[in-house]
């Protein structure tokens, strides 16, 4: 996944069972964003791998004032890349459980 300047990581161990999982997002390189992020804290949130889309969360982050609306795509892509990796890993490690 290309480096968007926004990092998204698991905020808990993933055992492949739960559909909702804790993620942590922070801006690693503010220069890559169009708008100025509100602060450079790490934002932790829960994401439902089955019911929600990265765009939902990105829009909520913008509504909550964390990011400028012009950065919706970058934030959504950063979350999407991490979610894809989590699902890919689950498929490989716990194929029968998926």
């Amino acid at each position: 996944a290309e480096d968007t300047g926004v990092r998204v990581e698991l905020a808990e161990e993933d055992h492949g069972r739960k559909s909702s999982i804790a993620l942590r997002l922070w801006v690693e390189d503010p220069k890559k964003l169009k708008g100025k992020p509100k602060d450079n804290g790490a934002i932790e949130f829960t994401f439902d791998l089955e019911k929600e889309t990265p765009d939902d969360v990105a829009q909520e982050m913008i509504d909550s004032g964390f990011f400028h609306e012009n950065d919706l795509k970058i934030v959504a892509k950063s979350i999407r890349d991490r979610v894809a990796l989590i699902l890919w890993r689950r498929e490989r490690i716990w194929p029968r459980m998926q």
Partner: peptide
Amino acid sequence: SSFTQVVHSAGRRFIVSPVPESRLKEQ
């Protein structure tokens, strides 16, 4: 504590905490 919590109208909670210095790229 240095944690702040923001709850979005759709109900999702965002918990903001400082990023460890080691995880921030050189500015």
